[in-house]
Design a protein around this nucleic acid. Structure first.
Length: 468
RNA sequence: CGGGGAGUGGCGCAGUGGUAGCGCACCUGCUUUGGGAGCAGGGGGUCGGGAGUUCGAGCCUCCCCUCCCCGACCA
């Protein structure tokens, strides 16, 4: 048997590439940094979209769509914003066979266009809060692309809201952070995240505060899974998003923005994958259980079809693999690569005893069960493995995080995991030193792990790691 | 942009001047089918591009292009 994947311990980035390729999730596009998402990968993204979308709507935001093309002048209006994004902009200067009078920027994010329209739509305090979200593609020219993690074009959701007060805006940015993002990552992706505030250096260009959710990958590096921003009145002033308050005064609104992207697909792979391939958390998996016809003899295929129907009836996302012209081992390996949580093997051997073999992707365990009991057993196994994936990731994060007191120790620790250190002992100077050594302050939290109000609160803990 | 590599079937690679090959993948047939099946047959390549040296260039020389890896930005 030839080797399917490069083992993680041998070369983690290579393993990641192998999984993406062998599981047919995606491949690179013709233009450097671009990505073709294949059906298996897109199905995962669609599941993410569906779950997040309902959470976003539950938080009161409504979907809309704004243009891909942004007038260059819009970008220029917010000084920090344009400075932060200009190195990675793609700009259209030629269209319709003519040189354009004003270049058009391909959106790297939509604060500016949306700001322009928020200004039109917000007149009165009665119009606030105005809560919008859009599902879109954005372009940020990347020097070092990595499939799903950093591509020049990626898919995401970006929320944009306007509020009457700073307190309301801050509360909303934090609400999305916890109720939408953290809840989704923990309960659907089975990924523990450190939720904190970014340092000034890492803050979004144009924001007054940036919050982040950081997850540890299988190699101990960190991945930013999502962010929310308080934009203060920066964009409101730049785009004239103002309104008449209840007492008749003209006030600038307070805005927020927040996003998660196809990067999360890469995060799931690198968080949960093992040397056999992907391990999808059941709550996310497009296919939760595959009924595998081992050999079609004595009515096995018919029994498998019935079982699949029963599973679907029991609310399990199940399908059947009756490709008996392919070797058994081939099909097993494919299913494992794809990360299907449960494989139900049904062949003449099982059928004669009225049984099914339940194989779990989580730990490769196999058990037998009677066919009638399978739907309920599968339901509980899925819930069980969802929890076990989370626990495994959480344990890794705890085991590979160390408390340190010097910059040197932090740099050392971040070669294999994360470090925690008093922010007051690092400061902007120490942060620069960390960056010079390929590592960074991912975020700041309170000592008990809770989210601080501001990045200059006293006694903050810095979470230090190498990042993707 | 600085440093280091590589361009040869779909993918991964070998090929030091003399008829372009190997593994995987693909197609056909037969035999198989409980952890990437076996045998037989078969299709597919302007060897990154251009110029040069030579009787003869995948290989040598020059120019150009592209890609990958390591550093400075980022969801």
């Amino acid at each position: 048997m030839s080797r399917v994947l490069t083992p993680r311990a041998e070369d983690f980035p290579r393993w990641y590439q192998d999984v993406v390729s062998k599981a047919k999730l995606a491949e690179s596009g013709p233009v450097r940094g671009s990505m073709v998402i294949r059906p298996a990968g897109y199905a995962i993204w669609e599941r993410m979209q569906a779950d997040l979308d309902s959470r976003i709507k539950a938080a009161g935001a409504r979907n809309a769509y704004f243009p891909l093309f942004i007038p260059n002048s819009y970008l220029q209006r917010e000084a920090e914003h344009v400075q932060g994004f200009s190195p990675e902009l793609a700009v259209v200067t030629l269209a319709g066979g003519k040189e354009l009078e004003e270049p058009i920027v391909i959106r790297p994010t939509s604060e500016t266009v949306i700001g322009e329209y928020l200004a039109k739509w917000v007149q009165s305090y009665r119009d606030l809060p105005l809560l919008l979200n859009q599902w879109a593609n954005v372009v940020r020219w990347e020097l070092r692309p990595r499939i799903f993690l950093r591509t020049s074009e990626f898919l995401w959701q970006e929320g944009h809201t306007a509020h009457a007060t700073n307190a309301d805006a801050q509360a909303y940015a934090r609400r999305v952070l916890h109720e939408v993002y953290q809840d989704f990552m923990v309960n659907v992706l089975a990924m523990p995240v450190v939720v904190g505030i970014k340092t000034a250096r890492e803050r979004f260009a144009g924001a007054t505060a940036t919050y982040t959710l950081e997850a540890m990958m299988g190699d101990g590096k960190a991945l930013q899974m999502g962010t929310t921003h308080e934009l203060g009145q920066n964009f409101a002033r730049a785009f004239n998003i103002d309104y008449l308050s209840a007492d008749g005064k003209l006030e600038f609104a307070w805005t927020t923005s927040w996003g998660t992207s196809t990067r999360m697909v890469g995060g799931v792979i690198m968080c949960h994958g093992d040397d056999r391939g992907l391990r999808l958390p059941p709550a996310l998996a497009p296919v939760q259980a595959t009924v595998m016809v081992v050999r079609d003899e004595n009515g096995v295929a018919l029994a498998a079809t019935r079982l699949t129907r029963d599973l679907v009836g029991a609310g399990v996302r199940a399908n059947i693999d009756d490709r008996t012209d392919l070797a058994f081992g081939r099909r097993v390996v494919d299913s494992e690569l794809a990360g299907v949580p449960i494989r139900l093997e049904l062949g003449p051997r099982e059928l004669s005893k009225g049984q099914v073999t339940i194989a779990r992707r989580f730990d490769a365990s196999k058990t037998s069960a009677s066919i009638d009991a399978v739907p309920s057993l599968v339901a509980s196994a899925l819930a069980d493995d969802q929890q076990r994936l989370f626990d495994e990731a959480a344990n890794r994060q705890v085991e590979r995080t160390v408390d340190v007191t010097t910059i040197e120790d932090a740099i050392d620790a971040s070669t294999s995991g994360w470090a925690r250190m008093a922010w007051s002992a690092i400061g902007p100077g120490g942060e620069a030193t960390l960056n010079e050594h390929g590592t960074s302050v991912r975020c700041l939290t309170r000592p008990d792990g809770s989210l601080p109000e501001r990045d200059d609160d006293p006694h903050l803990i810095a979470h230090i790691a190498r990042a993707y």
